[in-house]
Amino acid sequence: FSFMNTGIRHLKQLPCWTCFTNEESHRILREGLPDSPLFNGQIQSIGPRYCPSIETKIVTFPDKPQHQLFLEPEGETTQELYLNGFSSSLPMDIQIAALKKIPAFRDLVIYRPGYAIEYDFFDPTQLKHTLETKKIKNLFFAGQVNGTTGYEEAAGQGIMAGINAHINCHGGEPFVLARDEAYIGVLIDDLVTKGVDEPYRMFTSRAEYRILLRMDDADMRLTEKAWKLGLAKEERYKLLTEKREAVSRITDFARNYSMKPALINPALEQLGTTPLRQGCKLIDLINRPQVTIDNIAEHVNAFKRELDKISDRKEEILEAAEILIKYEGYIGRERIIADKLARLESIKIKGKFDYSSIQSLSTEARQKLMKIDPETIAQASRIPGVSPSDINVLLVLCGR
């Protein structure tokens, strides 16, 4: 996904396969439940919701006669196939017996059986947004120990804890990413504000600013921050500034260049879009679904000359400019909402209130605010159980 990636590896495309469990395999699995640590009490914790074991599936969905399984090659040269959808804590002989009831698997050979893991974690509400513990200075927690599952989640926390541990040693402002700046910001804010009652996975649906957190503008959002921290080299920062300037030149040109109906209408009809009745700016044409920067430039010489000035990374720059033009209204609207909430992020309240003595707060809000001790009004507003009226009370007290 990196814009810096030049040596792309082309792996050979291999087929994956799908098949289904059936009533017979379910019967064998059900009979084996007394031997499952997930169901006989050996494992006490809650497993990951988004990749449940096969025995959890047959217990949770007893009405389902089958569950889909995916067979994924482990590599280009191996004979091994990964059986996705059949994770299990049952003994190996029960797993094999159940699988052999599926016609495609009657002759299967297992290299390694499915297995279950037991999660344990430290309550992440004991952490600051830097991932330093509130209890012990200079002790940072990152990864599954904070109640997450998945390696991207662990890596995201790891880099943030590492950055802030370094800052603690060498001086500087704590480094925290906001919810409108990165999915890492959403992940960490969710953990330290809401806590977890099951292994946490990062989903796009957990972010309220999905239009701002796009993969095409990750470099625009984060490279400058990395450069200021000393994590990105000068070369990477230079590539970013060149790209930003090129995108800006294209969007400014499109915003200011006027189109005349007589000159452009034949091209618009050729592109399958409505001809103009009166003049407009080029940007208004690019906003149309049938029109792209590339296909309209073929018919507007001045615009084509402008694009020809871009020698390197042209495809990447044109994609960035086109997204900004076509989705300008949506991006702008979401930015206004994010900026409103950012003002609440600037109101620091940590250590300012004795919540137990503020009788105008609801009992639940007092308990939650005492437990989390939020850094800002905005973080307080995201704590489950703290209502908008509780936030208004805090705002009034801040005003005083």
Rank of each mutant, 00 (worst) to 15 (best):
D216N: 10
K309F: 05
I358V: 10
Q278W: 14
T125M: 14
G399F: 12
W17S: 11
M92F: 14
R288H: 11
N287K: 15
F121H: 15
G272S: 04
P289G: 04
L282A: 01
F86R: 02
G114P: 15
S258C: 08
K314T: 02
N138H: 06
L213I: 02
I325T: 00
V192G: 05
L285S: 01
T251N: 05
E306I: 01
G75Q: 01
K194W: 04
R244I: 12
K326W: 02
F105L: 01
L394P: 13
E345M: 09
E345D: 15
G75Y: 01
K368C: 03
D123F: 05
R382N: 14
Q42T: 14
D252A: 11
G156C: 07
F121C: 11
A161K: 03
L69M: 07
I136M: 13
A365S: 10
L81S: 00
A142K: 01
P37W: 01
I317G: 00
I188A: 00
R277H: 14
S346C: 04
L307Y: 09
F353I: 07
G195P: 08
V59P: 05
D339G: 06
K194G: 07
K238H: 10
G279W: 01
D294S: 12
R343A: 13
L38T: 08
L344R: 11
I58A: 00
N168F: 10
G351V: 08
A378R: 15
I349K: 05
T376N: 03
N40V: 09
P261Y: 07
Q270W: 13
E198Y: 15
A302Q: 11
D217V: 01
L263W: 07
I184F: 10
I46K: 14
L90D: 06
D217Q: 09
F175A: 00
A116R: 09
V247L: 00
V396A: 14
R236M: 12
G158H: 01
S356Y: 07
D197K: 13
E31N: 07
L81Q: 05
E319M: 15
F86G: 00
K135Q: 12
K340E: 14
G143Q: 07
K243T: 15
R221L: 09
P48S: 13
G329C: 13
P15Y: 01
K371E: 15
R236Q: 10
E315T: 13
A104H: 11
E74Q: 13
L177I: 03
E80T: 13
T148H: 06
F353R: 07
P374L: 06
A116D: 00
G185R: 03
E173G: 01
L99I: 00
N392T: 13
S36V: 02
S36C: 12
I337Q: 14
E364C: 06
F303L: 02
D216L: 08
S381F: 07
V176K: 04
A98W: 03
A182F: 09
E322H: 03
V393W: 04
I28G: 00
V145Q: 03
L341G: 04
I331L: 15
K340H: 12
Y119I: 09
A320F: 00
P199M: 08
R221Q: 08
T78E: 12
L395R: 04
Q367A: 15
A342Q: 12
S87E: 10
L29E: 06
M215G: 10
G156P: 03
K304L: 08
K352T: 12
L71S: 06
R27S: 12
L341T: 11
N168S: 15
T148P: 06
D120R: 15
R236F: 10
I325G: 01
R9P: 06
